[in-house]
């Protein structure tokens, strides 16, 4: 399942936040979006899941036009979203959060089991109110909930934000596992080293424009790229 964006312009009111973005993500590929705060990374992810409608340009999934599809239709096509800050349904239990994930595509117990196999720590927490989980467990649940959709394309917005190192490694291991299963992944990540360790391609965003798409090796070879577009060196963890 290949997602293509062509000439995407997005606005908040009269303020243009994305300018002519064109890119594509192929199955089994991890595309990492890097950029400073306010560069448009989260807006771009929200456009890919239909929560923000572009004013110009088009989005296609395997050639099918999605640009005017209502937001709820994206999930039904197998595009799953893990928002920044997790955005769990905090007053629902872990089990109920997973059930919401299963509903969109009518996924059955197998999808739930696969998600829990990736994050076994959640098994003992199924009846717990999700808002009372630790930060790491909440991130696991946010990803597991998205995986219950059996996604072909997974959009992850800063999944390692605020997590301790062991938890970050667990999340990155899950990303690699999903990639090996053929899931296309778009990852927004502030930790440059984490991004480089899983990405197939890195897209640099600056003030709503796509400035460059490069391989991770190019970033290793030219650390000034990261310094220029993100404002930190690639050594940041």
């Amino acid at each position: 399942m290949t997602l293509r964006l062509a000439g995407i312009d997005c606005f908040y009111g009269n303020v243009q936040v994305l300018r002519g973005i064109s890119l594509e993500v192929a199955p089994g590929e991890v595309l990492c979006l890097l950029g400073r705060n306010g560069a448009g990374k989260t807006t771009l992810l929200k456009t890919m899941i239909g929560l923000i409608k572009p004013r110009a340009g088009c989005i296609t999934l395997d050639g099918r036009e999605l640009t005017r599809l209502p937001a709820y239709g994206f999930a039904r096509l197998g595009i799953a979203y893990v928002p920044q800050g997790r955005r769990l349904f905090a007053e629902l239990t872990v089990e109920e959060n997973l059930t919401i994930g299963l509903m969109a595509r009518g996924s059955g117990d197998e999808a739930r089991e696969r998600a829990l196999a990736l994050f076994p720590a959640l098994r003992s927490r199924l009846t717990q109110i999700s808002g009372t989980l630790s930060g790491g467990e909440q991130e696991m649940l946010a990803i597991a909930r998205a995986l219950c959709l059996e996604p072909k394309l997974l959009l992850l917005d800063e999944p390692t934000e605020g997590l301790m190192p062991s938890m970050i490694q667990a999340i990155l291991a899950a990303v690699r596992e999903l990639k090996s299963q053929g899931v296309a992944i778009v990852l927004v990540e502030q930790r440059v080293e984490s991004a480089l360790s899983v990405a197939d391609r890195i897209a640099f965003l600056e003030t709503g424009m796509l400035r460059a798409i490069v391989r991770p090796e190019a970033v290793h070879a030219d650390p000034a790229l990261v310094q220029h577009y993100v404002g930190v060196g690639p050594g940041r963890r």
């Binding site: 994206f74 039904r76 979203y81 928002p83 007053e91 509903m103 959709l149």
Partner: peptide
């Protein structure tokens, strides 16, 4: 009821999970 409660807690995320809000 679960769909209603999920919509109550977070409208945007509910939409991202296929709920026609």
């Amino acid at each position: 009821g679960l769909v209603m409660r999920a919509t109550q807690y977070d409208r945007e995320t509910a939409q991202a999970f296929g709920i026609p809000v």
